[in-house]
């Protein structure tokens, strides 16, 4: 019960959101910069990895997953893995057809 009480009383300070916002804007500009120079097939991977890093910050800080019960984190991970698995399996099917 102690944990629930702590979660209830945890108010995230304004500056945490501002730091995360600065980081998200920095990552956005980084991905714009990296995709403008020619990197071949790496471009797709880099752009998607940066997008994944950005969304993990949105999920953990903006959407409070870091401070919630672990159940939410487990469910989000499961849904993410499900979507990733379906994308990979579908693409494998198309590539090796």
């Amino acid at each position: 019960m102690g944990k629930t009480e702590r979660e209830k009383n945890h108010i995230i300070p304004y500056r945490t959101f501002l730091y995360v916002l600065a980081l998200l804007i920095f990552l956005t500009l980084t991905s714009v910069f990296l995709t403008q120079i020619y990197l071949g097939a790496l471009t797709v991977a880099l752009a998607l990895i940066i997008a994944a890093v950005k969304s993990s910050f949105v999920l953990r800080i903006f959407m409070h997953l870091k401070f919630e019960s672990r159940l939410y984190g487990v469910l989000v991970t499961f849904v993410t893995l499900l979507i990733t698995a379906v994308i990979i399996i579908t693409l494998l099917d198309y590539i090796f057809r």
Binding site: S31, V32, A47, I50, A51, S55, M63
Partner: peptide
């Protein structure tokens, strides 16, 4: 935040990856 997160993926897919 979810709407924001969807855009985080739409942006590279349509605008950045050419």
């Amino acid at each position: 935040h979810l709407v924001d997160m969807i855009w985080i993926f739409l942006f590279p897919l349509f605008y950045l990856i050419t």
